[in-house]
Design a protein around this nucleic acid. Structure first.
Lengths: 412, 412
DNA sequence: ATTATTTTTTTGGGTATTGAAAAATATCCC
DNA sequence: GGGATATTTTTCAATACCCAAAAAAATAAT
């Protein structure tokens, strides 16, 4: 019931998607390589590939890779046709807004970066701001502008159920507005909103081959706490969970969080929380609005020199993270955890607290602490996650090949 | 990649499943009724139904429902052919073990109940016990025994990743053994293990039509705390999450739980915890091994008469549940919650604590408390959930109609 | 009897996949 | 240079499935 009637068109749609996915994952390949990768027969690949090429979705590369020259009919390498479509990516955080224009093969075509101030959205409604910024990009790339299919936006906060806006965000005044609606209305572009924490996890799946088929969670620890949870993709289902790990209550009535609640994990483990603890500021004191990286580094240095208060601050942070992981693994079967962000530099200082907290929960004792990897730079996973979301969404559109969605060609 | 190649056989498999599902959900129906229910054409239904009937999976009912007599060719009502296969259900808890033998239409064929004592598995290894009990049932039903496809077992505790046994259980010595293996080896039956909390949620989806398409959670509050989380079924994916809500840490280092950890939700909200609080026993005192229902009722009565300690006990319980719900909705988008078990009688006493705790978390403030339904009897949802799991698993087997899995017929 | 009505089956057309055979296009080697 | 060999692609014939429309079946109403 949940799924509809299966018919012959659906077969083709699914197999087209299989082909596009294989190329997305494995890069340019010949028909027979794709056939073995997907499990489809060569005959089917002839049919599917010739459709995709004639529809302008795939292109045949003129030059075969020189190393692979052997006897026999030379393989024709196929790849995503770059001009088949374009996607626009927007990453926004407290400091900057970065826009990237990518072609269908994932190559960066243009990029615009702008500074974001704390009062930006006091002056300009978010949708207006995004539309203006996108306008700049469209202006700069007028030839390909009509071929842009969607705008994918990376955001922090809590998405609303429709994915049209945010219900809450650490960026002042960003939440509470419909973003997708105005963008669609004024620019005719589909806006796809993604939670930053989730993109981090998706990005890691693409960046680290060992994670390709794992169920894992990423935890970003910096000025906020962001968590993402991801399962291996099942062709149809988008296994997505709207997680808000940083504001999971660690200790009821505990330390004051930036969000206004008390006892959130963030209020113990974010940079401002560590500083607060390290300087023995009461935990109910208003959180600092921003922590200079140097200050955080200084606390790390102090802790490494044996400063009790600094060490205690990281222990408290570790306990909050550990208890959070304990709660997480009580609810999900997780194979791996990847910790990202500035706090990776202090991970060894938090580790005892983490392990201690894990050991105090039943599920922690049962399952043990999953292996934890460290990745200092969170920017790359976010970008990769956003990029692959946008491109695979385009793949899906193209796989459907309903005549009603004509492929917009730019160059002829 | 994750999903395989789609071909014409898969279409039929999927559409057969659609037909079987429609009958499972809507009860016996004619070909044209099923056609409109599934969206398949009448022509396809003729083909699919005639296959299913000739394979002995469906049966045509001799008598059409008398009320529906009108002009025109009379409809031929089809239903699951009862003798197509059988399933065995086992529900085990601290008090009893109940075995039910069901035919393919879901009708109860035989039932055996036995008492379970606290030391049962000290004397007999669990697998041995189950095999012996199943043996009794097979003995009593020798004619249909060869047609039993699987044994589905409802258990409390933490399932291992393979679903072959438990990693932990509140029943002494039940965990840590392979259950599915020996049952398969000695009886040739597939054993399917299910977490009781999860079955409760699945069962409620079948029992309450309003929940049919909801994302919801059930919370059992009694001598243990059991949570289940369920999403509307997507044909292929089994959206299952191995949840252990009762032993989610509520307050790190807090009240002593039966599991040995400190601060679990259970240690505040289970019956023994309420008694402990109400009698002002220190929260680190060893939990009572069992609480007579009358004792629990008495605390409820006291609270209703204004007894401060009793009221406080339920407030603490409510806060633990509420904080747990707050954590749950921080990680999942949940439309509804159903509370089951003995504590429903005291729900109004816990409600202020629940609402208070929810209001203290960011996500609670954002999303608000989801509507909560109360169902006193948890037995019925568990049974229904287990039954439907077993039968739909059989449906899936039959939908596959690979020639290698012959339909075992009993009566000829 | 004949007509109207409703369900089910049959028929014809269209689209998929696949294995096997054929075609295409290189390199190898004398 | 020309035949042998090797690989990749394409073509072909067989088979499976779905659907719309037409036909058949089976009953009630007139």
């Amino acid at each position: 019931m949940a799924q509809g009637v299966a018919d012959t068109e659906m077969i083709r749609r699914q197999n087209r998607q299989l082909v596009l996915d294989a190329l997305r994952r494995g890069g340019p390949a010949s028909r027979s390589q794709v056939a073995t990768a997907t499990g489809l027969s060569n005959a089917s690949l002839t049919a599917i590939a010739s459709d995709l090429v004639s529809e302008g979705i795939l292109a045949e590369l003129a030059e075969a890779p020189s190393e692979a020259k052997g006897r026999g009919r030379p393989a024709v390498i196929m790849a995503h046709r770059r001009e088949a479509g374009y996607v626009l990516l927007i990453e926004i955080d407290v400091n900057r807004c970065r826009m990237s224009l990518l072609d269908y093969s994932g190559v960066l075509v243009d990029r615009v970066e702008s500074a974001v101030g704390p009062t930006l959205f006091y002056e300009t409604p978010p949708a207006t701001y995004f539309i203006e910024r996108i306008g700049v990009m469209l202006e700069r790339n007028q030839e390909v502008a009509p071929a842009i299919h969607s705008v994918s936006i990376s955001l922090q906060g809590i998405l609303d159920a429709e994915g049209a806006g945010l219900k809450w965000s650490p960026l002042s005044r960003l939440a509470g507005h419909d973003l997708a609606g105005p963008i669609r209305a004024q620019l005719g572009l589909d806006a796809l909103l993604y939670k930053r924490g989730r993109l981090m996890a998706d990005g890691m799946r693409w960046l680290d081959a060992r994670l390709a088929n794992a169920v894992f969670s990423t935890i970003y620890i910096g000025s906020t706490i962001g968590m993402g949870l991801t399962w291996p993709a099942v062709l149809n289902a988008e296994t997505d969970v709207g997680t808000e790990f940083g504001h999971l209550i660690h200790i009821p009535g505990g330390a004051l969080c930036r969000c206004g609640a008390r006892g959130c994990i963030e209020a113990y483990a974010a940079d401002y929380a560590v500083l607060r603890s390290a300087y023995s500021v009461p935990e109910h004191a208003t959180p600092a609005s921003a922590v200079p990286p140097a200050d955080y580094q200084q606390i790390i240095a102090r802790a490494r020199h044996g400063d009790r208060n600094a060490l205690r601050a990281f222990t408290l942070a570790g306990e909050a993270i550990g208890a959070g992981i304990g709660r997480l693994i009580s609810l999900f079967d997780i194979d791996n955890i990847v910790v990202l962000g500035p706090a990776t530099a202090a991970f060894d200082l938090m580790q005892p607290g983490i392990e201690d907290a894990i050991g105090h929960s039943l599920m922690g004792k049962m399952r043990g602490l999953p292996p934890i990897g460290l990745v200092a730079d969170a920017g790359e996973p976010i970008y990769r996650g956003l990029k692959m979301k946008a491109l695979t969404s385009l793949d899906r559109t193209f796989a459907h090949r309903t005549a009603s969605i004509p492929i917009r060609r730019v160059v002829e």
